[in-house]
């Protein structure tokens, strides 16, 4: 499928006539070798907050009425949420839940922008755009270990649910500083995941890093992970030792979120399917934008 079409569907949903019209236009332009005009109505969604929960001090789950987003969001994608304060860039948040006409976002309050989002209450509106990025590829996976650290938990519920629906075995390795911050485990339990917890202070589960728990576990067929970079690196190492493939959802500070500013890059192999068509470095490495070519990368493609 042409890249522009994927982008178009990502923004406009895959429904019916609009996509057909776009396709017709695309091929007409292609014949004429002309620039494809992808300019259209903005995809900034104005959605209503339906519920708000503080899962632990400083960890917020916001429920939003957003039927359009719920219909098109794929596991591993993110949205850019605009905090209700001036002078603040939008915040990239993994879509935590998406079902029927509702999505939910889970985030940690870490600064001014997330504090602004945390002040929203049911009935408020929130503006956001997305869904953005390429999600996890889950087809055909039967036995999966999901590794999540801290706020990374927000990006792995959707893939866990989808995998369980297809009958896969899912083990969640979930790490946090303390037991209190191991939030939302019930959701994963409901979905039928086995949960292995790790805390740094040993207040629950394995004492230490979640990757220590992963290393001690039985080898899965595939690994998905989202969390801080050191955790992802360790996960990639373990997967390599096991000789199983892994998909990592990278966390980074974003600027634009749409691939315009090159503020969120990661070095990947130029042979990777996601590599942007940019001039190669002599050592066969190319910089990919996490927001556009990612945020999910195959561990084997990363050159960090």
């Amino acid at each position: 499928m042409p890249r522009v079409l994927l982008d178009y569907i990502r923004y406009n949903g895959s429904g019916g006539k609009r996509v057909q019209a776009f396709l017709a236009d695309f091929y007409k332009n292609l014949e004429k070798k002309q620039a494809v005009q992808t300019i259209g109505r903005g995809r900034v969604h104005v959605v209503a907050v339906t519920d708000r929960k503080e899962a632990a001090p400083g960890i917020i789950v916001l429920g939003l009425f957003a039927p359009e987003l719920a219909a098109v969001t794929r596991p591993g994608q993110f949205v850019m949420a605009m905090p209700p304060c001036n002078g603040a860039a939008a915040v990239a948040l993994g879509v935590y839940q998406a079902c029927a006409d509702r999505i939910a976002l889970l985030f940690f309050v870490t600064g001014r922008r997330t504090r602004g989002l945390a002040m929203l209450v049911p009935g408020d509106t929130l503006e956001l755009f997305g869904p953005l990025g390429n999600g996890f590829i889950l087809d055909g996976l039967r036995d999966v270990a999901i590794v999540a650290g801290g706020v990374g938990i927000a990006s792995v519920l959707l893939p866990a649910i989808q995998l369980r629906r297809c009958g896969a075995r899912v083990r969640l390795f979930y790490g946090a500083r303390t037991a209190q911050r191991l939030v939302e485990r019930e959701r994963f339990a409901e979905a039928g995941c086995e949960i292995v917890a790790a805390t740094q202070d040993g207040s629950e589960g394995v004492r230490g890093y979640v990757t220590d728990a992963l290393r001690a576990a039985k080898r899965p067929e595939h690994v998905l992970a989202c969390g801080p970079t050191p955790m992802l690196r360790a996960t990639a190492e373990i997967a390599a030792e096991w000789n199983v493939s892994a998909q990592l959802a990278l966390e980074e500070t974003f600027g634009c979120g749409v691939g315009a500013c090159w503020g969120c890059v990661v070095p990947i192999a130029q042979s990777a399917g996601q590599a942007p068509p940019f001039p190669r470095r002599h050592d066969g490495v190319v910089y990919a934008r996490i927001c556009r070519e990612g945020p999910v990368f195959r561990a084997g493609d990363l050159r960090w």
Binding site: A88, A89, R113, G255, C264, V265, F278, R281
Partner: peptide
């Protein structure tokens, strides 16, 4: 061609941001 600076390249600050692309 330039690959640019090492990461992180962006930091959000009060009422703005720092960049070193």
């Amino acid at each position: 061609p330039r690959v640019g600076n090492p990461m992180p390249r962006l930091v959000h600050t009060p009422s703005g941001m720092l960049n070193a692309i």
